[in-house]
């Protein structure tokens, strides 16, 4: 293992993110506040509660997930796409470092940042609603696992993309809609049965459900299933990254 190489990439990525720290912290904080104003107060006043949780509190896990998913994907995809775009990838490809080590450095940094942002959103939400976390360890577990999984996913997008449009399109057309439809702001039990079945094909349902369970002990699907689905998606991403570096897909000519 080239640990120093992994650390070099990690540090490099963290430095890049530090340069844009302000905007990356400000935007989730502002959107969290907006969600609370719109959903928590304006609309939430009309909704009594969801699965026995006040609506304001109910949306907190979904909001955190939204932040984690979008930031993980954005940071990791940009982290690997940008060196390809600049041409500086030559150095990483010619270094004595394996593909999984490159992914580890890059994904580790992206996940670190999105976990930090997720916790900032949590703290911001705490200003609006009282939060009792039922299973703190599980909560952190889901947070970390999701951040890593989607950073890996973003890493793959950054390798697949060959222009800036493609880099944007997946987060915009896939991640955000799936998060909204995945029960970030409602329990899928409020949907008609047919739609509930369709929704179960949305992997983000399992993430949000498991994460919400760790807060309030209520879930759309059992937490074990959530954990299994997350782990399954994580393994898929790891396999894909492994394949990318074995074949040199989009990295080597």
């Amino acid at each position: 293992m080239n640990w120093r190489g992994v650390y070099a990439i990690y540090k490099f990525e963290m430095a890049r993110m530090r340069r844009t720290l302000l905007q990356s912290v400000v935007s989730p904080v502002i959107s969290t506040v907006l969600y609370f104003v719109v959903f928590g107060s304006a609309i939430g006043g009309r909704i009594t509660d969801m699965q026995g949780v006040s609506y304001g509190a109910f949306i907190v896990p979904g909001l955190i997930m939204l932040t984690i998913l979008t930031n993980s994907v954005a940071n990791a995809s940009f982290g690997i796409y940008f060196p390809r775009f600049l041409g500086t990838i030559y150095e990483i490809l010619s270094a004595p470092i394996s593909g999984l080590e490159i992914a580890l450095g890059c994904v580790g940094a992206a996940a670190t940042k999105s976990i930090i942002l997720g916790l900032i959103v949590l703290a911001t939400a705490g200003l609006f609603v009282p939060l009792d976390i039922a299973h703190p360890v599980a909560m952190i577990g889901f947070l970390v696992l999701t951040a890593i999984t989607f950073s890996l996913f973003g890493f793959l997008i950054g390798i697949w993309a060959d222009n800036f449009e493609k880099l944007q399109v997946i987060p915009l057309l896939v991640i955000t809609p799936l998060t909204f439809l995945g029960g970030a702001f409602y329990s899928i039990h409020v949907l008609p049965p047919a739609w509930q079945t369709v929704t179960l094909f949305n992997p983000i349902v399992y993430l949000i459900s498991g994460f919400r369970w760790s807060f309030f002990n209520v879930a759309d699907v059992s937490p074990g299933v959530s954990l299994a689905m997350t782990a399954g998606f994580l393994s898929l991403c790891v396999l894909a990254v492994y394949w990318v570096f074995r074949t040199g897909y989009r990295l080597k000519t």
Binding site: R4, I9, L86, G87, E91, I92, P96, I97
Partner: peptide, 24 residues
């Protein structure tokens, strides 16, 4: 390499130290 490709936002010191770390 033939083409100029640098991490434009990094400092000289940081980018050279990075290379050393990358090679373990």
């Amino acid at each position: 390499p033939q083409e100029l490709a640098t991490d434009t936002f990094e400092t000289v010191w940081a980018t050279v130290s990075f290379s050393r770390g990358l090679f373990g």
